[in-house]
Protein backbone atom coordinates (compact mmCIF):
# COMPACT_ATOMS: atom_id res chain seq x y z
CA UNK A 1 0.00 0.00 0.00
CA UNK A 2 2.88 2.31 0.83
CA UNK A 3 4.24 1.45 -2.61
CA UNK A 4 1.02 2.75 -4.16
CA UNK A 5 1.51 6.02 -2.28
CA UNK A 6 5.07 6.29 -3.61
CA UNK A 7 3.93 5.72 -7.19
CA UNK A 8 1.12 8.26 -6.79
CA UNK A 9 3.75 10.83 -5.82
CA UNK A 10 5.39 10.36 -9.22
CA UNK A 11 2.08 11.09 -10.96
CA UNK A 12 1.58 7.51 -12.18
CA UNK A 13 -2.00 7.53 -13.55
CA UNK A 14 -2.71 3.89 -12.77
CA UNK A 15 -1.44 4.21 -9.20
CA UNK A 16 -3.50 7.34 -8.67
CA UNK A 17 -6.58 5.63 -10.12
CA UNK A 18 -6.10 2.52 -8.01
CA UNK A 19 -5.51 4.56 -4.88
CA UNK A 20 -8.72 6.56 -5.35
CA UNK A 21 -10.69 3.37 -5.97
CA UNK A 22 -9.21 1.85 -2.79
CA UNK A 23 -10.17 4.96 -0.84
CA UNK A 24 -13.72 4.69 -2.22
CA UNK A 25 -13.95 1.01 -1.31
CA UNK A 26 -12.32 1.62 2.07
CA UNK A 27 -9.88 -1.17 1.38
CA UNK A 28 -8.00 -2.04 4.59
CA UNK A 29 -4.52 -0.50 4.81
CA UNK A 30 -5.30 2.27 2.34
CA UNK A 31 -4.49 4.56 5.25
CA UNK A 32 -0.86 3.46 4.91
CA UNK A 33 -0.70 5.06 1.47
CA UNK A 34 -2.35 8.25 2.74
CA UNK A 35 0.14 8.40 5.62
CA UNK A 36 2.89 8.28 3.05
CA UNK A 37 1.58 11.12 0.89
CA UNK A 38 0.14 13.39 3.60
CA UNK A 39 3.38 15.33 4.25
CA UNK A 40 3.45 16.38 0.58
CA UNK A 41 -0.09 17.76 0.45
CA UNK A 42 -1.33 21.35 0.57
CA UNK A 43 0.16 22.70 -2.64
CA UNK A 44 -2.87 22.85 -4.93
CA UNK A 45 -5.63 25.45 -5.10
CA UNK A 46 -8.87 23.60 -4.37
CA UNK A 47 -11.98 25.05 -6.00
CA UNK A 48 -15.46 23.75 -5.15
CA UNK A 49 -18.46 24.12 -7.43
CA UNK A 50 -21.91 23.71 -5.97
CA UNK A 51 -25.48 24.54 -6.93
CA UNK A 52 -28.85 23.04 -7.77
CA UNK A 53 -29.13 20.01 -10.07
CA UNK A 54 -29.10 21.13 -13.68
CA UNK A 55 -27.54 24.49 -12.86
CA UNK A 56 -24.72 23.76 -15.27
CA UNK A 57 -21.93 22.74 -12.90
CA UNK A 58 -20.43 20.13 -15.23
CA UNK A 59 -20.56 22.39 -18.26
CA UNK A 60 -18.89 25.20 -16.31
CA UNK A 61 -16.26 22.80 -15.00
CA UNK A 62 -15.53 21.62 -18.51
CA UNK A 63 -14.98 25.17 -19.74
CA UNK A 64 -13.05 26.13 -16.62
CA UNK A 65 -10.61 23.34 -17.43
CA UNK A 66 -9.93 25.15 -20.73
CA UNK A 67 -9.36 28.49 -18.99
CA UNK A 68 -6.95 26.92 -16.51
CA UNK A 69 -5.07 24.96 -19.19
CA UNK A 70 -4.72 28.16 -21.24
CA UNK A 71 -2.52 29.46 -18.42
CA UNK A 72 -0.43 26.30 -18.53
CA UNK A 73 -1.64 25.01 -15.21
CA UNK A 74 -2.64 21.40 -14.65
CA UNK A 75 -6.09 20.39 -13.39
CA UNK A 76 -7.57 17.56 -11.37
CA UNK A 77 -11.33 17.21 -11.20
CA UNK A 78 -13.51 15.18 -8.91
CA UNK A 79 -17.15 15.12 -9.96
CA UNK A 80 -19.57 13.69 -7.42
CA UNK A 81 -22.89 12.11 -8.39
CA UNK A 82 -25.49 10.66 -6.02
CA UNK A 83 -25.82 6.97 -5.14
CA UNK A 84 -29.31 5.57 -4.82
CA UNK A 85 -30.29 5.55 -1.15
CA UNK A 86 -32.34 2.41 -1.79
CA UNK A 87 -30.03 0.10 -3.70
CA UNK A 88 -26.64 1.73 -3.24
CA UNK A 89 -26.35 1.68 -7.02
CA UNK A 90 -25.32 4.78 -8.91
CA UNK A 91 -25.34 6.17 -12.42
CA UNK A 92 -22.54 8.54 -13.24
CA UNK A 93 -22.38 10.51 -16.43
CA UNK A 94 -20.73 13.85 -15.64
CA UNK A 95 -17.81 12.78 -17.69
CA UNK A 96 -19.85 12.89 -20.89
CA UNK A 97 -19.43 16.65 -20.77
CA UNK A 98 -15.73 16.52 -20.02
CA UNK A 99 -14.36 13.81 -22.29
CA UNK A 100 -12.89 16.37 -24.69
CA UNK A 101 -10.01 16.66 -22.22
CA UNK A 102 -9.41 12.90 -22.29
CA UNK A 103 -6.22 13.17 -24.36
CA UNK A 104 -4.68 15.94 -22.27
CA UNK A 105 -2.15 14.56 -19.76
CA UNK A 106 -2.46 17.81 -17.80
CA UNK A 107 -6.04 16.96 -16.92
CA UNK A 108 -7.26 14.17 -14.67
CA UNK A 109 -11.03 13.84 -14.29
CA UNK A 110 -12.61 11.32 -11.99
CA UNK A 111 -16.29 10.68 -11.17
CA UNK A 112 -17.29 9.52 -7.71
CA UNK A 113 -20.59 8.33 -6.25
CA UNK A 114 -21.71 9.64 -2.85
CA UNK A 115 -22.17 6.09 -1.50
CA UNK A 116 -24.51 7.11 1.25
CA UNK A 117 -22.55 10.15 2.44
CA UNK A 118 -24.60 13.22 3.23
CA UNK A 119 -23.51 16.76 2.56
CA UNK A 120 -23.13 16.63 -1.21
CA UNK A 121 -19.74 14.93 -1.31
CA UNK A 122 -18.37 11.41 -1.24
CA UNK A 123 -16.34 10.33 1.79
CA UNK A 124 -13.50 9.72 -0.63
CA UNK A 125 -13.28 13.39 -1.65
CA UNK A 126 -11.13 14.49 1.28
CA UNK A 127 -8.40 11.94 0.62
CA UNK A 128 -8.99 12.14 -3.13
CA UNK A 129 -8.00 15.80 -3.03
CA UNK A 130 -4.75 14.81 -1.34
CA UNK A 131 -4.02 12.26 -4.06
CA UNK A 132 -4.61 14.72 -6.92
CA UNK A 133 -2.60 17.30 -4.99
CA UNK A 134 0.50 15.11 -4.64
CA UNK A 135 0.27 13.89 -8.23
CA UNK A 136 1.11 17.51 -9.01
CA UNK A 137 -2.13 19.10 -10.14
CA UNK A 138 -2.05 22.90 -9.73
CA UNK A 139 -5.80 23.37 -9.47
CA UNK A 140 -8.28 20.82 -8.15
CA UNK A 141 -11.95 21.27 -8.94
CA UNK A 142 -14.50 19.45 -6.82
CA UNK A 143 -17.97 19.38 -8.32
CA UNK A 144 -20.57 18.48 -5.72
CA UNK A 145 -23.84 16.68 -6.38
CA UNK A 146 -26.72 19.00 -7.13
CA UNK A 147 -27.43 20.44 -3.72
CA UNK A 148 -30.84 20.85 -2.24
CA UNK A 149 -30.63 22.11 1.29
CA UNK A 150 -27.90 21.69 3.88
CA UNK A 151 -25.42 20.06 1.56
CA UNK A 152 -22.52 22.38 1.95
CA UNK A 153 -19.68 20.11 3.14
CA UNK A 154 -17.58 21.49 0.32
CA UNK A 155 -16.62 24.41 2.55
CA UNK A 156 -14.53 21.97 4.61
CA UNK A 157 -12.42 20.99 1.64
CA UNK A 158 -12.18 23.89 -0.82
CA UNK A 159 -10.25 27.16 -0.69
CA UNK A 160 -12.63 28.86 -3.08
CA UNK A 161 -16.31 27.92 -3.29
CA UNK A 162 -18.36 28.79 -6.37
CA UNK A 163 -22.13 28.80 -6.02
CA UNK A 164 -24.01 28.44 -9.29
CA UNK A 165 -27.46 30.03 -9.54
CA UNK A 166 -29.79 29.99 -12.53
CA UNK A 167 -32.73 32.28 -13.27
CA UNK A 168 -36.25 31.03 -12.93
CA UNK A 169 -35.77 28.46 -10.19
CA UNK A 170 -36.70 30.52 -7.15
CA UNK A 171 -33.03 30.21 -6.39
CA UNK A 172 -32.46 33.15 -4.13
CA UNK A 173 -34.74 31.82 -1.39
CA UNK A 174 -33.62 28.23 -1.90
CA UNK A 175 -30.01 29.29 -1.74
CA UNK A 176 -30.51 31.04 1.59
CA UNK A 177 -32.23 27.96 2.96
CA UNK A 178 -29.45 25.72 1.79
CA UNK A 179 -26.89 27.82 3.61
CA UNK A 180 -25.29 28.44 0.23
CA UNK A 181 -24.99 32.16 0.88
CA UNK A 182 -22.62 31.58 3.76
CA UNK A 183 -20.31 29.27 1.85
CA UNK A 184 -20.08 31.23 -1.40
CA UNK A 185 -16.83 32.97 -2.29
CA UNK A 186 -18.04 33.70 -5.81
CA UNK A 187 -21.59 33.65 -7.16
CA UNK A 188 -22.20 32.59 -10.71
CA UNK A 189 -25.43 33.46 -12.43
CA UNK A 190 -25.42 30.85 -15.13
CA UNK A 191 -27.57 30.84 -18.26
CA UNK A 192 -27.62 34.61 -17.82
CA UNK A 193 -29.20 35.16 -21.23
CA UNK A 194 -32.42 33.68 -19.85
CA UNK A 195 -35.33 35.71 -18.67
CA UNK A 196 -35.06 36.67 -15.04
CA UNK A 197 -31.26 36.85 -14.92
CA UNK A 198 -31.15 40.59 -14.14
CA UNK A 199 -33.76 40.08 -11.43
CA UNK A 200 -31.76 37.25 -9.91
CA UNK A 201 -28.65 39.44 -10.07
CA UNK A 202 -30.42 42.27 -8.27
CA UNK A 203 -31.83 39.95 -5.63
CA UNK A 204 -28.50 38.30 -4.98
CA UNK A 205 -26.93 41.72 -4.71
CA UNK A 206 -29.51 43.04 -2.26
CA UNK A 207 -29.24 39.87 -0.22
CA UNK A 208 -25.53 40.41 0.03
CA UNK A 209 -26.11 43.93 1.23
CA UNK A 210 -27.72 42.37 4.27
CA UNK A 211 -24.83 40.00 4.83
CA UNK A 212 -21.65 40.57 6.77
CA UNK A 213 -18.23 39.74 5.42
CA UNK A 214 -15.88 39.51 8.39
CA UNK A 215 -12.96 38.40 6.20
CA UNK A 216 -13.27 41.51 4.04
CA UNK A 217 -14.01 39.50 0.89
CA UNK A 218 -17.35 40.40 -0.63
CA UNK A 219 -18.34 37.61 -3.05
CA UNK A 220 -18.46 38.93 -6.61
CA UNK A 221 -21.30 37.92 -8.90
CA UNK A 222 -20.21 36.64 -12.30
CA UNK A 223 -22.75 36.42 -15.12
CA UNK A 224 -22.16 33.54 -17.52
CA UNK A 225 -24.20 33.29 -20.68
CA UNK A 226 -25.32 30.13 -22.43
CA UNK A 227 -22.71 27.88 -24.00
CA UNK A 228 -24.76 28.00 -27.20
CA UNK A 229 -22.59 31.05 -27.91
CA UNK A 230 -19.24 29.31 -27.42
CA UNK A 231 -17.17 32.47 -27.78
CA UNK A 232 -18.95 34.62 -25.20
CA UNK A 233 -19.29 31.58 -22.96
CA UNK A 234 -15.54 30.98 -23.04
CA UNK A 235 -14.90 34.66 -22.37
CA UNK A 236 -17.22 34.70 -19.35
CA UNK A 237 -15.56 31.63 -17.92
CA UNK A 238 -12.11 33.21 -18.44
CA UNK A 239 -13.37 36.13 -16.36
CA UNK A 240 -14.65 33.70 -13.78
CA UNK A 241 -11.21 32.11 -13.57
CA UNK A 242 -9.71 35.57 -13.00
CA UNK A 243 -12.06 36.04 -10.05
CA UNK A 244 -11.09 32.62 -8.72
CA UNK A 245 -7.44 33.62 -8.86
CA UNK A 246 -8.21 36.97 -7.22
CA UNK A 247 -9.86 35.14 -4.36
CA UNK A 248 -6.87 32.83 -3.95
CA UNK A 249 -4.52 35.80 -3.85
CA UNK A 250 -6.82 37.50 -1.34
CA UNK A 251 -6.74 34.41 0.91
CA UNK A 252 -2.96 34.30 0.74
CA UNK A 253 -2.44 38.01 1.38
CA UNK A 254 -4.75 38.01 4.37
CA UNK A 255 -3.42 34.79 5.86
CA UNK A 256 -6.80 33.18 5.41
CA UNK A 257 -5.55 30.17 3.51
CA UNK A 258 -4.48 28.69 6.82
CA UNK A 259 -8.01 29.08 8.12
CA UNK A 260 -9.42 27.11 5.21
CA UNK A 261 -6.74 24.48 5.58
CA UNK A 262 -7.61 24.21 9.26
CA UNK A 263 -11.25 23.46 8.41
CA UNK A 264 -10.10 20.58 6.25
CA UNK A 265 -7.74 19.22 8.88
CA UNK A 266 -10.49 19.39 11.50
CA UNK A 267 -12.87 17.47 9.26
CA UNK A 268 -10.19 14.90 8.57
CA UNK A 269 -9.27 14.21 12.17
CA UNK A 270 -12.98 14.01 12.98
CA UNK A 271 -13.50 11.39 10.29
CA UNK A 272 -10.33 9.53 11.20
CA UNK A 273 -11.32 9.37 14.89
CA UNK A 274 -14.75 8.14 13.94
CA UNK A 275 -13.34 5.34 11.82
CA UNK A 276 -10.66 4.44 14.38
CA UNK A 277 -12.87 4.57 17.49
CA UNK A 278 -16.58 4.46 16.77
CA UNK A 279 -16.67 2.11 13.80
CA UNK A 280 -14.75 -0.79 15.43
CA UNK A 281 -17.03 -0.59 18.48
CA UNK A 282 -20.13 -0.50 16.29
CA UNK A 283 -19.03 -3.45 14.20
CA UNK A 284 -18.21 -5.43 17.36
CA UNK A 285 -21.70 -4.70 18.71
CA UNK A 286 -23.28 -5.77 15.45
CA UNK A 287 -21.21 -8.96 15.18
CA UNK A 288 -21.89 -10.07 18.75
CA UNK A 289 -25.61 -9.49 18.32
CA UNK A 290 -25.57 -6.89 21.10
CA UNK A 291 -26.79 -4.26 18.68
CA UNK A 292 -29.92 -6.26 17.88
CA UNK A 293 -30.51 -6.90 21.57
CA UNK A 294 -30.32 -3.18 22.22
CA UNK A 295 -32.82 -2.51 19.45
CA UNK A 296 -35.21 -5.08 20.94
CA UNK A 297 -34.86 -3.56 24.41
CA UNK A 298 -35.70 -0.16 23.00
CA UNK A 299 -38.71 -1.54 21.15
CA UNK A 300 -40.04 -2.93 24.45
CA UNK A 301 -39.28 0.40 26.11
CA UNK A 302 -37.15 -1.39 28.71
CA UNK A 303 -34.56 1.33 28.46
CA UNK A 304 -33.65 4.40 26.38
CA UNK A 305 -30.91 5.12 23.81
CA UNK A 306 -28.91 7.35 26.14
CA UNK A 307 -28.68 4.77 28.93
CA UNK A 308 -27.53 2.17 26.41
CA UNK A 309 -24.97 4.54 24.94
CA UNK A 310 -23.63 5.27 28.42
CA UNK A 311 -23.32 1.54 29.08
CA UNK A 312 -21.39 0.99 25.85
CA UNK A 313 -19.15 3.97 26.59
CA UNK A 314 -18.47 2.66 30.10
CA UNK A 315 -17.44 -0.68 28.61
CA UNK A 316 -15.14 0.59 25.86
CA UNK A 317 -13.83 3.98 26.95
CA UNK A 318 -10.83 4.08 29.24
CA UNK A 319 -11.13 7.26 31.17
Amino acid sequence: MEELGKRALTGDIRAVSRLIRNIEDQVPNTHEAIKHIFPFTGRAHVVGITGAPGAGKSTLTDQLICSIRAQNKTVGVMAVDPSSPFTGGALLGDRIRMLRHADDPGVFVRSLATRGAMGGLSKAVGDGIHVLDVMGKDVIIVETVGVGQQEVDIINHAHTVLVVLVPGMGDEVQAIKAGLMEVADIFIINKADREGARKLYKETLSMMDMGKFPSGWRPPIVMVESNLEPHTFAKSVDELYEKINEHYVFLKEHNLLQERAQLKVQTEINDALRSAILEPVLSRLVESGEFDQMVQKLMKKETDPYTLADEVAAKYLIK
Binding site: S84, G89, A90, L91, G93, R95, I96, L99, S111, A113
Partner: peptide, 17 residues
Protein backbone atom coordinates in the same frame (compact mmCIF):
# COMPACT_ATOMS: atom_id res chain seq x y z
CA UNK B 1 -29.63 -0.61 -19.04
CA UNK B 2 -27.76 2.04 -17.02
CA UNK B 3 -30.89 3.22 -15.25
CA UNK B 4 -32.23 -0.24 -14.52
CA UNK B 5 -28.90 -1.37 -13.11
CA UNK B 6 -28.76 1.69 -10.87
CA UNK B 7 -32.28 1.33 -9.62
CA UNK B 8 -32.42 -2.41 -9.06
CA UNK B 9 -28.92 -3.38 -7.98
CA UNK B 10 -26.08 -2.00 -5.90
CA UNK B 11 -23.81 -1.71 -8.91
CA UNK B 12 -22.10 1.59 -9.69
CA UNK B 13 -22.56 2.39 -13.38
CA UNK B 14 -20.58 4.93 -15.34
CA UNK B 15 -21.81 5.89 -18.79
CA UNK B 16 -19.35 7.64 -21.06
CA UNK B 17 -21.79 8.72 -23.77
Amino acid sequence: LARTIKETSGIEVHYSG
